[in-house]
Amino acid sequence: MVRSANAANVEAIERAIVAKRRLRLKYRAASTRATTWRDVDPAALRLADSELYLVGWDLGKEDWRIFKVARVEVAQLRDEPSEPHGVFDEARLFENSVRVWVADPVDVVVRLTPEVAHLVEEYPLHPNQRATKAPDGGVVVRARVAGTLEALRWVLGWGRAAEALEPSAFRLLVAEELRAAVKPYGRGLSKKSTPDPVSRGVRRNPATTERGRSPKAEPSP
């Protein structure tokens, strides 16, 4: 199921691909939310995580670009035919992509804890990743990816079970993202506000005292 894509825009894009015609897109950038008009020669539609993406040659950028269809506000079919721009090799374009992101390749290394190590093949970082068992039962994942944005999301998705190891810039990026995520939860918290083991669902042993020692028997009267 495709989420959030405007049906009229999808139809215009599909018609442009089939008829080999140029598109004019009013496109909203994810980072700045600013909208710009882009002239694009469309090549293909790609589905990833229930989201539709347009692969096309951006005439203004003079390069292949990926457009999330949900951020296309207007898609106009032009009279001009699209141009080939060389041989379109989709497999090569997405060779290092985790999902659909296209950028310069980066070699990353991530460690997963023993608790989730068995899931590394079920939820891979990249199809060409190399996973090596660690002495503690965890796993170290090495992969060449397109940029670090999608790899960052993959690491964050594991929570405390993942640690970015290399490169140092990627490790720093993950650390900064985690610090920013934790910041709202640190406001107003103190040691007094920390829940006790009972409220956290941890059962106390009724045969122990506050410090965990068994109470001494009272002497007989």
Rank of each mutant, 00 (worst) to 15 (best):
G157M: 00
S31W: 10
H126Q: 07
D39G: 00
E83I: 00
D39W: 02
A181R: 07
R179S: 10
Y27H: 09
L77S: 13
D196A: 13
A134H: 00
F67H: 03
V87G: 00
T132L: 07
P127R: 06
V55E: 12
A164D: 04
A7T: 11
A12I: 06
K68S: 15
P114K: 07
R171G: 01
N128M: 13
R144V: 05
S199K: 12
W101L: 09
K191H: 09
R65N: 06
Y27N: 05
V87S: 09
Y185T: 12
N128Y: 09
P215H: 04
V198T: 12
H85A: 02
R92H: 10
E121G: 05
E122G: 14
I66F: 00
L152I: 00
P42A: 05
V98G: 00
H118G: 15
I13M: 09
L112K: 00
L189T: 09
I66A: 01
R211Y: 14
R24P: 02
A164S: 01
N205R: 14
P167E: 09
A143D: 05
V74T: 12
A143Y: 04
S97A: 09
Y185L: 15
L173E: 13
R130Y: 00
W57I: 00
R92Y: 03
L25G: 04
G138N: 05
E150G: 06
V174D: 04
G188N: 04
L54M: 06
L23D: 01
F88N: 03
R21F: 01
E62K: 14
G188H: 08
V174N: 04
A164N: 00
P105C: 12
R203N: 07
P206F: 03
L165E: 13
G138I: 00
S193A: 06
M1F: 14
Y185C: 11
A48E: 08
F170C: 07
L189V: 14
N9F: 10
V102H: 02
T208F: 13
G188Y: 06
A103R: 02
P215W: 08
R203K: 15
A5P: 01
S168L: 15
K216I: 07
E150Y: 07
N6K: 15
T36I: 06
P124T: 03
I13T: 08
A151G: 01
H126V: 09
S190T: 14
D58T: 06
V110S: 03
A180R: 15
P84N: 11
D104M: 15
F88K: 01
H126Y: 11
E62C: 11
G159S: 05
D79Y: 10
E150C: 07
R28W: 10
E210M: 13
R46D: 12
R78S: 13
E80V: 00
N96C: 12
R46Q: 14
L189M: 14
V109C: 05
H85I: 01
T209K: 05
E80H: 02
P221H: 10
A162I: 10
R99F: 13
P219V: 06
A7H: 10
R15F: 04
G137S: 12
E90V: 02
L77A: 11
A103V: 03
H126G: 10
D136K: 01
E95I: 14
S190Q: 08
G86R: 04
